[in-house]
């Protein structure tokens, strides 16, 4: 489907991120091991509150060190990002790693013209002259399919539509041709037709630049379309990691299977949708032992879960947390009412 996938671009080893709440630290992401290769799209899926965005901002180093504690290693192109000081990190952010945010309106400075917001990246990471930078801004706007780029460069964010703003965010993210692009729910704030356009654009850019992409989303349709590999996250942990074919054809973990089952099917309009009971536990209420998903599948008896669930390899490139998947089945009761 895509060009040959090369060596690891980004490797996360046992990454934990803890936030300080009322004086105590709570783990928002827990022992994450992941790798992303150049030219591949890794999707991270999960409900709201699973730690997807926290993972992204951890890689970008956007957390306030005063109330965040991060441990582990984040190896990007040979260097451990967690060992870098602010200045060294700033040379990588924007230049080597670009980030696309969820809400394109609030992600742009309301008082600055589009052109200068794109130019800012070039200003700090390139040696281009002012004139060359402006030239490059126009090129970038053309690259993200903006008509009349000269006029748009002189406008303010509020004058553009949602889709156009997201294109601007993408232009900022790719301005320095980064090796890695982190897209945090890039299409959530957009309507469906625009979503498809933005995803097309991301794919085109990824292929042009041979960049690796971490695509954070809760839309399994997007995952099936765009991703090469998928990490399913629940309550700060990876519960299943697989290629996209493995995940959709042979999902293992009860959470993955619940997610897939709660997707509407196009030829079963009359069936009621499956609903996962309850919600993701808050950071302070995470169970300390046992499968974190266990409380939402109460019909699976406790002895089916591991005490300290670990990732088990079930196939090449396919990992599942906890052994409970081996004899998991959905209860035969009608849900909803």
């Amino acid at each position: 489907m895509r060009d040959e996938i090369t060596e690891d671009l980004l490797t996360l080893k046992d990454v934990n991120t803890s936030f300080k709440i009322d004086g105590e630290y709570y783990r928002a992401i827990d022992a994450i091991n992941l790798h992303v290769k150049s030219n591949e799209v890794l999707a991270i899926v999960g409900e709201s509150g699973c730690g997807k965005s926290t993972l992204a901002t951890t890689i970008m180093g956007l957390h306030d060190p005063k109330n965040t504690h991060i441990s582990g290693e984040i190896i990007f192109a040979g260097t451990d990002l967690l060992q870098l000081n602010e200045k060294q990190y700033n040379q990588i952010r924007g230049a080597k790693i670009g980030m696309i945010f969820q809400d394109p309106l609030s992600a742009l400075n309301p008082l600055q013209k589009i052109g200068s917001q794109i130019e800012e990246v070039l200003l700090y990471h390139t040696t281009l002259t002012a004139q060359q930078r402006q030239q490059r801004v126009i090129e970038l706007l053309e690259q993200v399919d903006i008509n009349d780029p000269k006029r748009i460069a002189n406008q303010f964010p509020h004058q553009l539509s949602g889709g156009m703003r997201q294109r601007i965010i993408i232009a900022i993210a790719i301005a320095c041709k980064p090796d890695l692009i982190i897209a945090d729910e890039p299409t959530t704030a957009l309507d469906v037709t625009i979503q498809a356009q933005i995803l097309d654009l991301l794919r085109t850019i990824q292929q042009e630049n041979q960049a690796g992409i971490i695509l954070i989303t809760h839309d399994l349709g997007v995952v099936a379309e765009e991703a090469d590999r998928v990490a399913v996250m629940y309550a700060g942990q990876i519960v299943e990691l697989a290629t996209v074919q493995q995940l959709f054809n042979n999902p293992k973990h009860p959470y993955t299977r619940s997610l897939l089952r709660s997707m509407p099917q196009k030829d079963s309009f009359n069936d009621e949708l499956y609903v996962i009971d309850g919600m993701v536990p808050s950071l302070q209420k995470l169970p300390t032992v046992g499968d974190r998903f266990a409380q939402r599948i109460p019909w699976v008896s406790a002895d089916k879960h591991e005490v300290n669930p670990t990732l088990h390899q079930v196939a090449p490139e396919h990992f599942v947390r906890c052994t409970c998947y081996q004899n998991f089945s959905f209860p035969d009761i009608k849900r909803g009412a």
């Binding site: 990190y89 700033n90 952010r93 924007g94 230049a95 670009g98 945010f101 609030s106 992600a107 800012e120």
Partner: peptide, 22 residues
């Protein structure tokens, strides 16, 4: 803590410049 400051940080802009420009 606004999103546009997060964007600026993800662009690699230094804290000093973020204060001045944003």
């Amino acid at each position: 803590s606004s999103d546009y400051v997060k964007t600026a940080r993800s662009k690699g802009v230094s804290t000093k410049n973020i204060y001045q420009h944003h």
